[in-house]
Design a protein around this nucleic acid. Structure first.
Lengths: 153, 153
DNA sequence: CCAACAAGTTTAGGAACTAAACTATGCTCA
DNA sequence: TGAGCATAGTTTAGTTCCTAAACTTGTTGG
């Protein structure tokens, strides 16, 4: 009865890209689950390395900012920071203007992990670039940006 | 002392794409966490809808196949299937050639969820396509495929 | 001064796994 | 044939990564 409620269009070609994108999501989902080792920092879970990435090498960041930047609750960040502090990748310091607030920043060891992770990203991307022409890269980046903008909504 | 150990290259342009890609990962990570409602099937968690997607509308699939297709252990699939069965989206039946095996297939309600989800995907992709030229789409899809291939390793 | 608010922390609980033990069936070959 | 091993699924205990909600402290505007 309801076989192919999909209507009219040459669905094949449309679905092809949608399907590739679906597979990409699945791959990333899988990838984003396994811990990795970065520099001397030892094995870090995906959340941990993302947190380090979000803190950044320069200056400190408030818990609140970190939470919105990562798109999680402040409770989640609080827990993450406890773990990272225990691993000595991150340190807390007080925020001059408001004694409730806590400034989070990377320790030297944390910065090392940051750099190592960034290095992995860049190398990965370099490998991808190596298989594409200059023009393709530009278009690809444009599309990724559009996609990002799109997902933000 | 160790400011910019990154060497020589015009790092900006390289990092730009790598950074966009990083943000995409984060966005997807966030997106892949919240449940959504599909058709009359009620609210489904990301894992649930992915499982339904992997089972597919035609015929049945074995637990084992499902596990490899989703990239998780059979234990994980087993648990998922219990939940989906309780929600009456999926049914088990016996596999003629091997009485140990279990064939999983979608119920009518499950198929509805499948279609609704597929519709969301296609619409999403259509919206993206609408902002790109034909040539850009082709290149984008090519890049996505390359990326997929790349992540599989 | 103090009520309302804001920054973080804590706690309980759920989702989504994994690894490993377990059950039950199927296969092989001496 | 049947002992031993492999294979299909299930179960269980434990982990990670969250969230929501209650709490603790500190800030601020009437």
């Amino acid at each position: 009865m309801l076989m192919d409620t999909n209507n009219s269009l040459p669905t094949n070609s449309i679905n092809k890209g949608s399907h590739s994108l679906g597979r990409l999501f699945l791959q990333l989902r899988r990838l984003e689950r396994q811990p990795q080792t970065f520099g001397k920092a030892g094995s870090l879970t995906p959340s941990e390395i993302h947190t380090i990435e979000a803190i950044g090498c320069e200056g400190g960041i408030l818990m609140n900012e970190l939470a919105t930047s990562l798109g999680v609750t402040k409770g989640a960040v609080s827990q993450l920071v406890v773990r990272l502090e225990a691993k000595q990748l991150v340190k807390r310091s007080s925020y001059p203007h408001d004694s409730r607030a806590v400034l989070i920043s990377l320790t030297d060891k944390g910065k090392e992990a940051y750099k190592a992770h960034e290095e992995v990203h860049v190398q990965f991307y370099d490998q991808l670039r190596a298989q594409l022409s200059q023009q393709e890269i530009e278009i690809f980046e444009k599309c990724i940006d559009k996609l990002n903008e799109f997902l933000r909504k």
